[in-house]
Design a protein around this nucleic acid. Structure first.
Lengths: 383, 383
DNA sequence: CTGTTAGCGCCTTCAT
DNA sequence: ATGAAGGCGCTAACAG
């Protein structure tokens, strides 16, 4: 039964018959011929026996053209398979119909869902999307913005890695505010006037913490990461919920990482568990941290929720079918992406017309607490 | 404890002090002023008291310039915060330093991981990435390609939604082959000569099926989707493994969907389970189908691997910590993305120099079977 | 209704 | 070492 490799190789070869190779070489002939060279408006004009302007009118659908000129042009357009050169168009009319998206890491499902929504919403309105990873590094972020700027994108959607207390020099500020339509997502810089589309992080964290408190937990660990408004607000919500219930927040229950990675989540969790025997619940503040947390708990052979109650942030499809199903705070990534895109494009268009700005400063969506089975009641005899 | 909403609102307001608003309005002044207008080479030239050509030489780093002219220019460049206009550059030298990526859906982690790798590899080599979703629709795919083509991208990486037996008319073929450097990923069209970077799907499916057979399973369900070479090869590998072990593949154990979504996975799984009481194992051929399969199994209150052994395709971080940890076929998404990008850019550059093509036809990576605990031994008394 | 023409910003040859 | 000038492909104002 083992090592049927020879058989395998045979069938692999069979699957791609030699015939294809021949075909391929024939096709090679079409390379670097007319098909390959850009067909321009000039070519159309020459072949149709009209002026470039007339071709432009037909293609652009403005001015007036005699029906037979139009017909001729359209015929040649089809014949030559003409596709307009957007670069030349952009050169002329100063818009590229392209927007830039700048996030920490595209592989992060939270961002990839948002970017997916951005692409879909953008495509619907005729815009393409250029993506850029910053790896949560402010220097890289600035580089990305410069590149996008030089590519003359019409607008930017950014989940900035800058912390809310950053001080920007004038040269950098140009790339963050005022010179090009920009919408911030997920994280906001309070010193900028640009629109920000995000989730109510404070309230989401508040609700989740309150829920754990209602279950009788008082020593609740929390792991966070990235020095952003988003994480700050979540921590604030957590602390506030504790205080509103007469529990003093303690730093020993809080871990705050650099980049909020899976590995940080793992380390922080085992760290918290080892150093706080009295901790009965934990809250991980993003999807990567949740994964890390679950790994650590798994490694330590603890069971949820018997040994530890657990709440995560950023729901994922499998959260409802793992054992036990996880209680999670969720945000609507699709909505964030869609609304950010639609607003950005509104701003872009309004700029065409008059000044700009919709006056909106922030659009905030609710975070939802989805209660499943990862939190146990804690009997509190000693209260 | 409940409805502390007033308190919440108060703290929300506190968090964004009114001071910020003032600052914001001051900043508003910088809008639509010089900062906002593109600074061009002409502006630099005028202010530095030299010709445009000299500025070009300094910035482009070619020809020879006197050191004091150079100094003057660089000073003004910094003063005016000059950023070159890539669009104009592209116009001139016919390359945009941008590549297009066309996939079914970015939200799909398999693709988002690949695209992440593409972005990283591309950025390293000075290329930006435009993304396009096709939603697994050939018509949309062609539209995407046309748009990208019109944007004069330097190359394309595509996971085509076309099935291997598609017949392309000449007009469409232009967008798939021969006119612009193109690298196919994950799925290949045997009638094209372009490079394809992908996983050995046949062998991966073969190994996984063989593994199940070794465990004593003979009635193995399989769920697939999207009419692509990828899925075909996986099904072939599965069938071949069965036949090599004297088991006749039966259509009743196979389900093949349109788009390989979570929902299809769920339906197919419950369908298979209901109609085949003798089925003891299942194999889901991509990440979405795996999720759907797990959902269905969960809904039917079956347990893995006691009631059903299960193998999935496309590993994810949580697969090792769910209960039970899942046995999975994995592919190296990062490598696919990175290699596809590097090869594409090689092709782009080779085209500059002479003809083109590296001669490579396909780069195939191994699929790995990661054995965890989702498959049970099946005692086969009746053999 | 149609053609001519002047740029968009940058590159680059040619002449000085 | 430097400046003038033409042109990439398209748009649109202007003239016929």
């Amino acid at each position: 039964m083992r090592s049927c490799i020879e058989k395998l190789l045979q069938s692999v070869e069979k699957a791609l018959p030699i015939l294809c190779l021949r075909k391929v070489f024939q096709m090679g002939d079409t390379r670097n011929t007319e098909l390959n060279k850009q067909v321009t408006i000039k070519d159309i004009a020459k072949k149709a026996g009209v002026s470039q302007a007339t071709v432009g009118r037909v293609i652009g659908g403005y001015g007036s053209v005699s029906s037979k000129a139009k017909e001729k042009v359209l015929k040649v357009v089809k014949e030559l398979n003409y596709v307009p050169n957007s670069i030349a168009q952009s050169m002329k009319n100063k818009r590229t119909k392209t927007i830039g998206v700048v996030v920490g890491r595209f592989g992060n499902p939270f961002f990839s869902e948002i970017v997916n929504a951005i692409e879909v919403a953008g495509a619907k309105l005729g815009y393409n999307v250029i993506i850029s990873n910053t790896d949560e590094d402010p220097k890289k972020e600035l580089e990305c913005l410069k590149t996008l700027y030089s590519k003359q994108i019409d607008g930017i959607i950014i989940a900035t890695t800058l912390s809310p207390d950053t001080v920007l020099d004038a040269a950098s500020k140009k790339f963050y505010s005022g010179s090009i339509p920009t919408v911030y997502i997920d994280r906001e810089l309070p010193f900028l006037q640009e629109l920000c589309v995000l989730t109510d992080n404070y309230f989401g964290a508040y609700k989740a913490t309150e829920y754990l408190i209602e279950k009788g937990h008082r020593n609740i660990g929390i792991i966070a990461g990235t020095n952003t408004s988003t994480m700050h607000r979540r921590i604030e919500g957590y602390k506030r919920a504790l205080m509103d219930n007469n529990i003093e927040p303690q730093e020993k229950f809080i871990r705050f990482g650099e980049k909020a990675t899976v590995e940080e989540g793992r380390q922080f969790t085992s760290d918290l568990l080892i150093n706080n025997q009295d901790m009965t619940a934990m809250f991980a503040l993003n999807n990567q941290l949740v994964t890390g947390m679950l790994k650590a708990i798994n490694d330590m052979k603890l069971s949820i929720p018997t040994d530890l109650s657990v709440v995560g942030w950023d729901d994922f499809e499998l959260a409802q079918i793992v054992n036990p199903p996880l209680t999670m705070v969720t945000q609507d990534t699709e909505k964030i992406g869609t609304v950010a895109t639609e607003k950005l494009i509104e701003i872009i268009h309004s700029k065409d017309v008059e000044s700009n700005a919709l006056g909106e400063r922030r659009i905030v969506f609710n975070a939802h607490l989805i209660i499943r089975e990862s939190c146990a009641d804690r009997k509190v005899e000693w209260i």
